[in-house]
Structure formats: C-alpha cells, structure tokens
Design a protein around this nucleic acid. Structure first.
Lengths: 238, 238
DNA sequence: AGTAAATATGTACTTACGACACATTAATTT
DNA sequence: AAATTAATGTGTCGTAAGTACATATTTACT
C-alpha cells in the first residue's frame, strides 16, 4: 500500500469513527388503549416544522445510561404516569431518510394500557387518543411503525393473554368480544368466541354481574393471576 | 430557576447531547446452515481479549450511510460471498454492559444459507460452522442472541417456507424431514410429516429420483418459484 | 438369489373450527 | 302488571386438520 493510500485510509478511518458515533438511537412507543369499542393510540402533535399539522408517536432519544426498555418506560411514565405496563419490542427502523434532522435509528415498542386508569398528565400538551382506524398519515415513518405494531398485536391476540391490559380488571364476555373485534377489525360469532376463550382457560368466573347496563347484565370475569402479563415481555426461549 | 441551576442544566445538556451520540449501533447476523443432519451456525473467534477463546457471531458497526439491512448484507457478503440470502430482523439488544469497550446497541438478524453453495471466503480466518446444539457459551451476549434467533426460526418453520434456503434446489422428502427434525430438535412421524407438507402446497414433484444414496432412492422435489423467499423479509402488513 | 434398509401409502380416532337457532333473563315501555 | 325489547347463555352437526399406527414395495448390497 502506498504512502498516500495509507494517509487516505487513516483519514477515512478517522472520519468513519466519528460518524459511527453520529447516529442517534431512540425508542418509539405505540401506546394502545381501548374506549367506546374502538382501539386507540396515544399521539402527540409533531413539534417539527417539516411535519407541522401531523401527529407522531411518543418517543425519545435513548440516554447513555439506560437500556432500551428503561427508555421506553421513561417515555411511558412521563406521558401516562403509569408504571407496570405491558411492553413488547417489535422492530427496529433504521432507514437513512427517516428523520429530517439527522441519522436516527429507532426501536419500536407497543404497550397496552387501560385508558380509564391513566390520568393524562398532559392535557395542556397536544396529547390525545386517536382511533387507530382513522389514522391516515403520521410524521416521520410513524405510520409504518404503527402498522407494524398493530400487525404484531393481531398476531398475539389469539395465542397470548395480552389484551386484558386494555380492559378493567372485571369485564364481561361481551366487552371482551367487542375488544377482539376492534383489534381484529372483524365480526366474531358469539358462541364460537366464547368456546374459544373458554378453552384457553385464561379466565375466572367472578360470580358477579354487570350493572348499570341498559339490558340483561352478563357475568363478570377476570384474568387469572398466573396469566397476568405486566412489565416488559419476557423472552421465552425454547 | 436559579442561575446556578441554569448553568448546571446547560452543562448537563451539553454532556448529554454528546453522550447521545456516544452510542454505537451494530448488526449481528446469526447465519444458519445445515449439514450432516445438523443445524449449524457460522461463528468467528472473538478478537477481544475479554473473550479470548470464545466464539462470537458475525457483526459490524452500522455505517452512517447505510441502513440496517445494508449493513447486514455487507456482513454476509464479506463473510460468505453470498448475495441473495434470506434475512430477517429478530430483535434489538441494548443492555448497558453488553460490550466491554463501550455502549453498543445491536440489531440481530438471522439468515439461512445453503452451506454447499458458499465458498468460505476466509479459511485463513477463524471462521467455522458450529453445531447449534453444541454451543454452550459465546462472547458478549451472543448466546442469548443465538437462542432468540433459533426460537424465531422454530416459530416460522411450520408456517412459512423459509427453511428451503438451507437446502439445495432439489431435495427428497427425507432430507426435508431430517432438516425439520434438526431445527425443531424432535422426531417426526414420516407419514404425518409428508401429509402436512403436502397440504401446504409449497413443493413441486420433479419426477426425478435421488441417486448416489446407499438405499432405495426417493423422489426429488423443489420449492415452487412463487414461494421463494430470498432477500430481506418483506413486512406483510394487515 | 436373498437380505437389509429405506420409500411410499391409508385408515381410524380424536380434536379443533365454523355455521347456525332457541330459550332465558332483566330492563324498559305501555 | 303485562307486554316488549334486547341482550345473555348454551349445544349440535358437519368439516377440516392432527395423531397414532402397519404393511407392501423398491433398490442396493452381499
């Protein structure tokens, strides 16, 4: 290798080394909620000029002294005031042009919370629940991120007892079915749905009844303790 | 806010800003192969003193001008000489202590290649195929990464035609069953396995026979063109 | 020619899934 | 108080897929 090439290589390496650390990493949380028979997601008005008028997911840069889950929980805590929330990593998005101010790679998480239990810390802020079905466009690549997380949620819903995090502790089978229908965006046969849920063995019959419903009240159920899934998803290996 | 606090905050922000860009991001590839009825993974001797004697996955820092898939393909190309390889993102690992030289967040991919078709570019290097079952310990958190990717592969195997990337173009049903058994680490009933595969409709009967086998030769099959899955996994939304 | 080893195939049993109808209960209305 | 309304609660049948299991056939090898 010639002397010039050596110099050139050294210079390149120097630049490269600096650039390697010129990539920022963030987390974005797709925070799902459920209300009025609709699946909702928590969004905030984008503060970037490029995306003025558009909403975006809740996210933040990852700090040097926290891991990815900690960063996600910080975002969740700051925005919703909630702590023990179901959280699951979905995908990392690293496209070159995804952030107008520079190179930012983001890891997307989805989480499930009971809307009723959270006091929006920030009514002064432009933070609101939006019906997932109504969302056509978001800032950055956040629409893709949302779609990816929704897709993951739909994959999970029948095999894992996660969506109970969207409901109050006690619920009727009708409420549960309505929730499933919102998530899957389909109608389900009531008898087959009940059979399917019964087989899972996830629920306990509380021997209580709904009240304050304008019709015959249904039985109330709760998720069995052993199936509670709060906190970050634990990797189940093998 | 007092003046001192202001100064303090400004200083903190300065430090924080620098630190934000003091996180490096890498990709690690779990490159699976299949040979001698065993599932293999491509590993290299770790070059870090802390992990001397241990093997590690193949990875590299992500360059500022490439996205995550490009970085993974670069690693694959450099190490195996192969281009059109199945690749799927699995998980991002961002623990604080995972890299001894500093903060490195890594996105893990797995890929599937036909061992026979790749000319190990680097026999001089300490690059070798290892039986997945024999691996007890790896450098960094790479054992966890490997386990996570193996877990994902097992989830995919029955529902998606991906493992054919591990086989030559033409194969017998016995070879395919052996492969499934290696991946799932179980015995499968031959008749039920064939029925299950037949129902998928993934294969074409080539009307050819094995040869050079020391027993009655079986029919040869190939994956239908329409089910070929090369390149990076395409996100199928909704 | 005989033996060994693998291929190729079918049936009976059980379990899950999907379509579908009717009696019951409580709140509301008349 | 009786009738109406709207939702709850439950069972069957046909179909599709999953599992367990045995025998005849073909080729290579000795």
């Amino acid at each position: 290798m010639s002397k010039e090439q050596n110099l050139k290589t050294a210079a390149l390496e120097k630049i490269s080394h600096l650039d390697y650390f010129n990539i920022a990493i963030s987390v974005d949380c797709v925070i799902f909620g459920y209300d009025n028979k609709e699946l909702k997601v928590l969004l905030i008005k984008s503060d970037l000029e490029e995306f003025s008028g558009l909403y975006s997911l809740l996210g933040d840069l990852v700090r040097p002294d926290e891991d990815l889950e900690s960063a996600s929980y910080r975002v969740l805590r700051d925005r919703t005031g909630m702590e023990d929330v179901y959280l699951e990593q979905v995908h990392t998005f690293g496209g070159l042009g995804r952030h107008p101010s520079g190179r930012v790679i983001t890891t997307a998480y989805y989480s499930l919370i009971d809307i009723k239990h959270h006091k929006l810390k920030l009514n002064h802020n432009d933070l609101h629940w939006h019906s997932v079905n109504d969302i056509k466009e978001l800032a950055f690549d956040h629409k893709t991120i949302l779609d990816t997380c929704l897709c993951r949620l739909r994959e999970q819903v029948m095999d894992h007892p996660v969506v109970f995090n969207l409901l109050p502790e006690k619920f009727s089978l009708r409420e549960l079915q309505d929730l499933y229908q919102s998530i899957l965006d389909t109608d389900l046969d009531r008898r087959n749905f009940r059979k399917k849920i019964a087989i899972k063995g996830w629920l306990v019959d509380l021997n209580e009844m709904e009240n304050n419903v304008p019709h015959r009240p249904g039985k109330l159920y709760a998720l069995k303790k052993q199936h509670h899934r709060k906190g970050p998803k634990t990797l189940v290996l093998e």
